[in-house]
C-alpha cells in the first residue's frame, strides 16, 4: 500500500512536472521565448511583502493626502478601472496641467528591471515617491505629508505593524506602496490557456496573429517572453520626437527618443497607446509599425522597418494581442 502511495505520488509529481516543463511544447505553434510566468513575483530582500505592508500600501495608494492639493492620489493616474492607467493620451498633473507622457500602467511593474518610461528609477521603492514630490505631478512636500500621516492614528498603527520601529518616513511610505504594487500583476489570459494546450482558447485569427507576431511582424524583437516586454529602450519613430526619453539619463546615441517597452498584458484595457498616447487603437499601433515608423534621424531603432503586412494580417495581430487580456483582471476589493 505504501509502495502504491509512493508510486502514485511519484506519478502525480511526474505529471505535474511534465505539465509545467512541457507546457510550451503542448502547443506546436510556439517557436520563440518563454511564455510561462515566473513562479513568484520578485521583491527586494529589504522589503519582503506581507499582509500588513500590502494593506498599508493600498491605503496610501488611494489616499489623496499624498498630493499637495489633496485632490490626487496615485490612483488618479493609475486607475484600476482603466487598466491601472488613466485612459488619457498623456497624464494630467497638479492643477490640471497636461503632462508630456502617458501614465504607464502599474500592471506587472513588479517584474520590470527599471521603472518609468525613461528608466530613471531602478526599483518600485525608488519610483514610488517620485510622482508625490514632483511639482508637475502630485506636488506634495514630503515633510508635510509625513506630518499629515502622523496625525492619523490609524496610519501610526498601520506603519508600526508593517515596519516595526521604522516609523513614518519617506522610505517606509515608498516600501509600503511598492509592496502593494507588487500585488498588481496579470492573471490568466486566453493566450495562457492556449500556451498550456487548450487549442480552442484563442481564435484561428489570433493564432495566425501570434505567428506573425513572432515572425513577419517581428514584434518579439521588443515584446518578448511571458510579459511581452524586453525591459529595453527603443525609439519607435513616432511622429513627434521632441522628448529625449532615456537619452536624458544615459547619453548614448541609440537612446535618443527611446522609451521603455511596455508590457502587452491587458493591452485592451490601457488605450491610448505609446508613451505619448498618440495611437487610439491597436489597429493604429499596427499601422504605425507597418510603415516602420518615422525616421527623423534621431536614433530610430534598427528593428523599425516597413513590415509589408496586409490589412488582414494586421487584424490578425490585433486579434492575438486581445488574447493577452486577463479573463478576470485584478480588481480592488
Amino acid at each position: 500500500m505504501k509502495i502504491l502511495r509512493i508510486s502514485m505520488s511519484l506519478l502525480v509529481s511526474g505529471l505535474l512536472f511534465s505539465t509545467y516543463g512541457s507546457a510550451q511544447a503542448a502547443n506546436n505553434n510556439l517557436k520563440h521565448g518563454n511564455y510561462l510566468r515566473p513562479a513568484e513575483v520578485p521583491y527586494p530582500a529589504y522589503n519582503k511583502p506581507n499582509a500588513a505592508r500590502i494593506e498599508l500600501g493600498k491605503k496610501l495608494f488611494f489616499d489623496t493626502r499624498l498630493s499637495g492639493s489633496n485632490n490626487m492620489s496615485c490612483a488618479s493616474c493609475h486607475n484600476p478601472a482603466k487598466g491601472w492607467s488613466d485612459g488619457l493620451p498623456t497624464a494630467i498633473g497638479n492643477g490640471g496641467k497636461v503632462l508630456g507622457r502617458a501614465s504607464p500602467t502599474v500592471l506587472n511593474t513588479a517584474y520590470n528591471a527599471v521603472q518609468m518610461w525613461d528608466g530613471r528609477a531602478r526599483t518600485l521603492e525608488d519610483q514610488a515617491t517620485g510622482p508625490i514630490v514632483s511639482k508637475d505631478e502630485m506636488n506634495q512636500d514630503m515633510g508635510k505629508l509625513i506630518k499629515e500621516l502622523k496625525a492619523v492614528k490609524q496610519y501610526v498603527k498601520m506603519f508600526e505593524k508593517a515596519y516595526p520601529g521604522e516609523g513614518i518616513s519617506k522610505p517606509t511610505i515608498a516600501k509600503a506602496i511598492a509592496s502593494y504594487e507588487r500585488t498588481i500583476v496579470s492573471q490568466t489570459s486566453p493566450f495562457d490557456k492556449w500556451v498550456k494546450g487548450n487549442k480552442k482558447a484563442i481564435s484561428a485569427s489570433a493564432q495566425r496573429g501570434f505567428k506573425l507576431f513572432e515572425g513577419k511582424a517581428n514584434c518579439i524583437a521588443c515584446h518578448m517572453d511571458w510579459n511581452f516586454a524586453d525591459d529595453g529602450f527603443h525609439n519607435i519613430g513616432l511622429a513627434k520626437q521632441d522628448d529625449s526619453g532615456r537619452f536624458a539619463h544615459i547619453p548614448v546615441k541609440v537612446l535618443r527618443g527611446a522609451f521603455k517597452t511596455p508590457t502587452l498584458r491587458n493591452i485592451t484595457l490601457t488605450a491610448p497607446y505609446f508613451h505619448d498616447g498618440s495611437a487610439s487603437t491597436l489597429m493604429e499601433v499596427m499601422k504605425h509599425y507597418n510603415k516602420g515608423g518615422v525616421d527623423l534621424g534621431k536614433g530610430l531603432d534598427p528593428n523599425m522597418k516597413p513590415l509589408h503586412l496586409s490589412k488582414k494580417e494586421m487584424q490578425d495581430v490585433v486579434e492575438f494581442m486581445k488574447t493577452l487580456t486577463d479573463i478576470k483582471p485584478v480588481v480592488v476589493k
Binding site: 528591471a113 527599471v114 528608466g119 524586453d230 525591459d231 529602450f233 532615456r246 541609440v254 527611446a258
Partner: peptide, 12 residues
C-alpha cells in the same frame, strides 16, 4: 582602470 560595460538597449 575599471571599466563598466553595459548595453544601452537592455539595462539588465
Amino acid at each position: 582602470g575599471t571599466v563598466e560595460v553595459m548595453c544601452a538597449i537592455h539595462p539588465t
